[in-house]
Design a protein around this nucleic acid. Structure first.
Lengths: 175, 175
DNA sequence: CTTGATTAAATGCGCCTGCATGGAATAGTC
DNA sequence: GACTATTCCATGCAGGCGCATTTAATCAAG
C-alpha cells in the first residue's frame, strides 16, 4: 500500500545504512500490519452494513460532548484530521440525518454540530460490530500483557500521540 | 485518521466488553501511530521533491527483478495492492519515463513492465531520503532490541504478512 | 469608525481509490 | 473446432482527499 515492499536488500545498494535492519523491519511491519488490520476491520464493518470508521469516531465524539454538540474545530482537534476533512465529514453526517448544524450565537462565523437520536443510535449499534472486529483481529491474537507491551512500544514512536482527550472517567465536561 | 478516537469510555455504553482494554488501546495506537509516522515520512519525501512511497516500492521491485522487468500481476503480488491500483501506478511511472510497457510474446493478453535508467536512478536517489526518514521517525526512537520486539508483536497480528517475496540474498531469479 | 490581521468554515480543482465492468487472450471441456 | 470459464489488464464512474482559495465574522489597533 505505501512504501513497504523492500527488505534488507535495500541496504546493499551503496547507501549510508543509517537505519538499522531492525528499525527498517519495524517500519515495514508497522505499515503492512496496520494496513492489513485496518482493512480487515473496515471490511467487517462494511459487511455488517455500516458506514466507515471515521463516521463512528465523529459520532462518538459528538455523543460524548456535553449537550451532544461540538464546534467543528473541536471535532477536528479530537479526530486529528484536517479542517476540510471535518467539514465534509459533517456534510455527510448531516445528509444522512445523523447530525445537524446549528447556529452559534456567540461567534457567528462558527457553528455547532449536534448529534441526532438517529446518530446516537447508529453509534451504539456500530460499537457492537466494531468491538467484535477489534477482538477478532487484535484481541484474539495477543495476550493482554503483549497488547500492553505493543502499546508502550508504539507510544514511543508517537512522541505526542496520547494528547487526544482521554477525558478522565468520572470527570465533568471539559472546557 | 480512521476509527480511532475513543478510549475506555466506549466500554461503558452497555456493550459486551469483548475486547480487553489492552487490546483496544493497542488497536488505537496502531492506527494513530502508523498514520502519524507514515505522514511524517511521506512529508519528508515530498519536501525533498520526491514522488510518493508507492512509486519507490514499484521501482524497487522492478529494479530487483531479473532483467528489470515484471508482469503487472507479479508487481501486484509483491506490493499487495489491488489490480487496478497496479495498472494506474504503472501508467504514472510510464508517463514520467521511469518505466516502459513491453509486449509479452508468450502470453499476449499480458505485458512486461521494464524499468528505465531514469527509473533506476530515481529509486537510488529516493532511498537516500527514505532511509533518512526511517531513521528519523523510527530508528532514532527505538533501540534495536525494542524494534525487534515491536516487529515480533506486530507479526503476530499479521498471521501471514511476511509472505511477500523476501528473495533470499544470493538466490537466482525466481520462476 | 476604518483598516488590516486572524480565525471559522466551506468549496473548486485535480488526483487517487474502490467498485464494477469491459475486452482480449488463454485454458479447459466435450 | 466450438463453447464456456478463467486470467490479464484497462477504464468509466462515483466518492474521498489534499491543496489552495474564498467568504464571513471577530479581533486589534490607530
Amino acid at each position: 500500500m505505501t512504501g513497504i515492499t523492500f527488505d534488507r536488500h535495500m541496504m546493499d545498494q551503496g547507501m549510508k545504512r543509517r537505519p538499522s535492519t531492525e528499525a527498517t523491519a519495524a517500519w515495514i511491519r508497522l505499515m503492512r500490519i496496520q494496513s492489513r488490520v485496518l482493512g480487515a476491520v473496515e471490511q467487517d464493518l462494511k459487511k455488517a452494513g455500516f458506514p466507515p470508521l471515521a463516521w463512528y469516531d465523529a459520532l462518538l465524539e459528538l455523543s460524548r460532548a456535553p449537550g451532544g454538540e461540538l464546534r467543528p474545530v473541536e471535532l477536528e482537534k479530537q479526530m486529528l484530521i484536517p479542517q476540510y476533512s471535518t467539514s465534509r465529514l459533517i456534510d455527510r453526517l448531516v445528509e444522512e440525518g445523523l447530525a445537524a448544524r446549528r447556529e452559534c450565537k456567540m461567534d457567528k462565523r462558527g457553528l455547532f454540530v449536534e448529534i441526532t437520536e438517529a446518530g446516537r443510535d447508529l453509534q451504539k449499534r456500530m460499537w457492537s460490530a466494531y468491538s467484535a472486529a477489534i477482538e477478532r483481529h487484535v484481541g484474539s491474537k495477543l495476550s493482554d500483557a503483549d497488547a500492553a507491551k505493543l502499546c508502550s512500544l508504539l507510544d514511543r514512536l508517537g512522541c505526542s500521540c496520547v494528547e487526544a482527550t482521554p477525558v478522565p472517567p468520572g470527570a465533568a465536561a471539559p472546557r
